[in-house]
Design a binder for these strands. Sequence first.
DNA 1: AATGCACTCAACCGCACATCT
DNA 2: CAGATGTGCGGTTGAGTGCAT
Length: 375
Amino acid sequence: MGRSPCCDNRGLKRGPWSAEEDEALLNYINKNNGHGSWRSLPKLAGLLRCGKSCRLRWTNYLRPDIKRGPFTKDEEKLIIQLHGILGNRWAAIASQLPGRTDNEIKNLWNTHLKKRLLLMGIDPQTHNPVDSNCLTSTAPASLATRHMAQWESARLEAEARLSRESSLFSQPPEKSEPDYFLRLWNSEVGEAFRNLTTVDKSACPSPMSQASSSTKCGSVSAVTIEVGNTLTGSSTMAGDQNEDMEEKICQTNTEDVGHNICQTNTEDVGYKICQTNTEDLEYKSCQTNTEDMGYKIFQSNTEDVEYKPWQLNTEDVMAGSDSSCSNDLEDSSDTALQLLLNFPINNDMSFLEDNVDDYAATPARWTPNSFICPL
DNA sequence: AATGCACTCAACCGCACATCT
DNA sequence: CAGATGTGCGGTTGAGTGCAT
C-alpha cells in the first residue's frame, strides 16, 4: 500500500487471512476467555501477524456476535440519522447497530448511502442541501431543501439547548456532544421514547414516515409527548418542581402535524419551532426556568393510552438504573436526541425504499408529492 | 475471449487517547 | 508528571469481482 508499516512487522504476514489463521485466532481467544493483550496474542496464538491485524480480524470478522448479511432499510435509515448527528464517528454509530461493525458501516456509507444522499441533492457530510448549482437535473431539489432545512432546524434547536443547558451543570458534556446524544439515546428516557415510538408504530409506521403514510393513520387524532424528569446536574438542586420547565411535542393529527416545544428561562430565552402541517412549518420552543427542570413523557391517542416514565425526585433517579446514575446530564436534555432522530417529521427517507437505479431510471416517479406520500 | 473500468470490502496505516510505570 | 505502552478510531488502499465494451 506504499506506506511504512505501523509497527515492526517485518517477517509478519499481511493481507487476507487464511482459514487456518482464523481458526488459530478463534481457538486462542476461546481458550483464554478473551484476547488479553493484543500485542502478545500473535506469539501466544502462533500467528505471524501483528496484534493490530489480529484485533481487526476479530472485531470485524470473527467476533461471534457479528451480524452477517445485507443491511436492512431500517438500519440504513438509522445510519443516516445517526450520521446526521454524529458525523463520521463510525464506532459510535456502530454501537447503535448491534452486530454491525464500524468498518462495515463506513463502507456502506461510502459506497451506497453517500451516493444516495447526493442524488437526493443532500450533502452527505453536512446533511444540508447542496448548492442548487450542483444539483442533478433529476433531483427533487426543493423537497430536499425543505426536508433538510427542517433537519437543520431541529439540529440547531437541539444544539442550542445543549449549549444552554450545559452551562447549568457542574460537569457539562463539553468533550463530546455526540457522546452526550448517545447517552441520551441510551438512557431510560431514550428507551422510553423508543418504546413510545414503537407503540405508536402500531397505529402509524414511524415518526419519520408519518407524513408519508398519513392516509393510513387517520385514527390517531392526537399524540402528545411530554418528557418528565426532575434530574438535575447537582444533587443539591431541588427536584420537585417539575412543572417549571416542560417540553411538549404535540401532533394534533396526521394531516396537520404540530410541535410545541416550550421552554422559558430566567433570561427569557425563547425558541419557536412549530410545524403546523407538512407544508407550513413553524416550531415553538420556550424554556420557563433554568433552575427547575422537569420533563414529562406521555402519549395520548384516541384510546387514551398514556405513558409516564416519570421520575419524581433526584433520589428516585439516583436509585434507578446505571444509565441514570452514570451521568446526570443524560436526562437533562432528553428531547435533544429525540428532536434529532424523530423531530423532523418531514425528513422522509422513503427514498431508501427505492434504489438509486430506479431513481435514475425513472425520475418522473420522484416528484415532491410522491416523495412525501409514496404509493 | 480479452481488456478496461467501476465497485465492494477486507485490511492497513497513522493518529489520538487511555492506561500503566 | 512524563514517557512508554496498549488500544480504538477514522481515513485510505488495493485485491478481488462483475460488468461493459
